[in-house]
Design a protein around this nucleic acid. Structure first.
Lengths: 192, 192
DNA sequence: CGATTCTTTGAAAACAGTCAATCTGTGTGG
DNA sequence: CCACACAGATTGACTGTTTTCAAAGAATCG
């Protein structure tokens, strides 16, 4: 499983072999079953979690008890609640496995040490946050400027690999619309 | 003006005096008039820009020519298009001054050098990005889970100092609703 | 004061949500 | 292998919300 991570990170970043060895030695490989919860709201999230296979989602429950999907994550991506991770305060989010899969995790303390020791890993980590921030800016723009149908097709186009792995009612909750509305959008454009 | 920045940064970060001297010596203080544009879409953004007074907004124009406000910024905050800054590609955003004001800027190259030389400034810069990311996550949750009225009152409560400095039609464009809808929300709740 | 920008209003149309019911596919236990 | 349960997806009817367009009132500024 670490091979997948190695391939992933070496694609974009030159990590010295010595650094990579540290990263490998301190990682923990895990299997998860479909439906399994990695994080439950109220818990403190203290992991760096890289997905080598499977599909996950980060979601939050509002006052009315309705679930809202913050984001999805599949292989070669990370799943985290950065707010709880950084502040080390109880999370408002949940992370659940939408399918069985495999993950690699590093406890926060271990990861912090890695970033101190390896400047290459620190650079990689910084870039990760930058990209995540830019992606969230794009999503905000989409949410304030596009209607439901436009957001749906944009999501489908931007994340095709995610799209065909997650149930539609979760896509709806990600887009900020009801599952019925999404269903009607699909019907309306079905024969185009 | 640099005094304002100094006070701001020393409130939360312990920056060695020597580092602070470098930051001061390399900064450029500027005055801006109301309506002045700092960034026009198509240009490459290569500045770090700290606001010592005044009010600014970052906005983007959609295909239909409608402006959508990405965010506002007032004194003691930064205004930037991080995407263009990082990628050094033409920006899709505009930055304009909503009032006259004063800013401190550092060219990207200069700022990069500061971060290389000063670990304290690097830590500060990292924290800035983390906070910006967390804020955008909160905004996304608000956009997908709250209706227009809830978003309006949340904005008013979260950013009171911004709220009373910007015109309502820009608030509407920040919330992703039409100015007429915002006007009606205000009327509906006016006497509560 | 006049021009401009900002805000509000009304009426109609478009859009999205809710509720209840039905349909579809998947998988499990008898 | 079938029947059944279950989760997911769709549909219809209705309600509620938001946009659009056109117009008119405020407020602000030179």
């Amino acid at each position: 499983m670490f091979k997948i991570f190695e391939k992933y990170i070496l694609q974009t970043n030159a990590i010295p072999l010595a650094d990579l060895a540290i990263v490998r030695e301190s990682c923990i490989e895990k299997k998860v079953r479909k439906g399994q919860s990695l994080l439950h709201e109220g818990e403190i999230w203290a992991l760096n979690c890289f997905i080598t296979s499977g599909c996950f989602r980060l979601y939050r429950t509002d006052k009315a008890g309705i679930e809202h999907t913050a984001r999805f994550a599949i292989e070669n991506w990370w799943i985290t609640d950065l707010e709880s991770y950084i502040s080390q305060k109880p999370s408002e989010y949940n992370i659940e496995a939408l399918s069985s899969g495999t993950i690699i995790v590093w406890p926060k303390r271990v990861w912090d040490d890695i970033l101190k020791v390896s400047s290459a890993m620190k650079i990689f980590n910084d870039q990760l946050l930058e990209r995540a921030y830019i992606a969230s800016q794009r999503r905000i723009f989409s949410l304030i400027s596009n209607n439901a149908a436009e957001r749906y097709f944009e999501f489908q186009k931007t994340y095709p690999n995610v799209f065909n792995k997650v149930p539609l009612h979760m896509v709806a909750s990600y887009l900020g619309i009801s599952r019925e509305t999404l269903s009607r959008i699909r019907r309306e454009y079905a024969n185009i």
